[in-house]
Design a protein around this nucleic acid. Structure first.
Lengths: 150, 150
DNA sequence: TGCTGACTTGACGTTTACGGAAACGTAAAG
DNA sequence: CTTTACGTTTCCGTAAACGTCAAGTCAGCA
């Protein structure tokens, strides 16, 4: 059973073995099983083996990006669940929308934080380039610390 | 001793008590002491008490932003140490520059990740706005997962 | 048939970033 | 002098996100 995706000799309903996904995404099998325990993905189970679909692949992609962006696995699960639920009875929908908005706002703040950090690192790099000055992170103890993410 | 910053009745060499900093930055004293244990800040110690300078304030600001941006405390310490060292013997300097560049690159990738995530969340919000469709995260299992941060 | 390699399920260990509580010190206010 | 507020150290606990064995299963093949 060389490659699962090869056995399915052509089109879409591809299945991947756990090792293939690990390879493809650079994660360990342990991690994938952990995500499964935590209800983030649910690959098909034939007996004891796992078979991942393209949907699982996409989910994994979301999970990993979510992590890089600072979401906890719990939050990621919630978001994925939202996607799955999709619509719902009015009230549920409003909550969902609100939570999404909050996430987006948080991400925007994070963008700003990253901008600032990159900026400071670049300034620092500049001082390194011409080694003639002393530096001070401590100009005026800038009070711009509103908007604490998360 | 109402407020330390008030006793220093005017200019720069202000000192802050731990409680003031907590208040100002929305962190617990426990956290500040922890950062001290971890060598991230080193407030003046008169006897057993702590007195924070503007420099400490600025450092704290950096620490908190660094955290929001995804640095670990260890990484933050390294970066702060770099700032302190400033220049150095040529070889050390090159390493420093390199590490900075890497951090900046990682942050740029993170920016991109966040852009993508915001985008997806907004698309999702749109589908929520007009509740008439089914959605699929799983269009084509987009393979755009290169550039794994950190 | 026996080996190899990939996979499986537990179960316990680890790191990070603090939180919480005990037990005590100090200092200004009433 | 006692209260109240704030601060200190020390130690133990925890949640998240896996890593790391151990021990066993199963398919393919020489």
């Amino acid at each position: 059973m060389e490659s699962l995706s090869a056995t399915t000799s052509g089109r879409s309903p591809a299945r991947y073995a756990i090792g293939e996904l690990c390879e493809a995404f650079g994660v360990t099998a342990r991690a994938l099983r952990f995500y499964e325990d935590e209800q983030l993905i649910a690959p098909e189970r034939r007996g004891t083996s796992r078979f991942y679909s393209d949907r699982d692949r996409a989910r994994l992609s979301w999970i990993l990006r979510g992590k890089r962006v600072g979401f906890s696995l719990g939050e990621i699960r919630e978001l994925l669940d939202l996607y799955d639920v999709g619509d719902q009875r009015e009230t549920q929908r409003r909550v969902t929308i609100e939570r999404c908005q909050q996430r987006i706002d948080a991400l925007r703040r994070q963008q700003h934080d990253i901008d600032t950090t990159i900026g400071e690192l670049e300034v620092f790099l500049a001082t390194l380039a011409r080694p003639a000055e002393r530096l001070g992170i401590d100009r005026k103890a800038s009070n711009e610390d509103q908007g604490s993410n998360y």
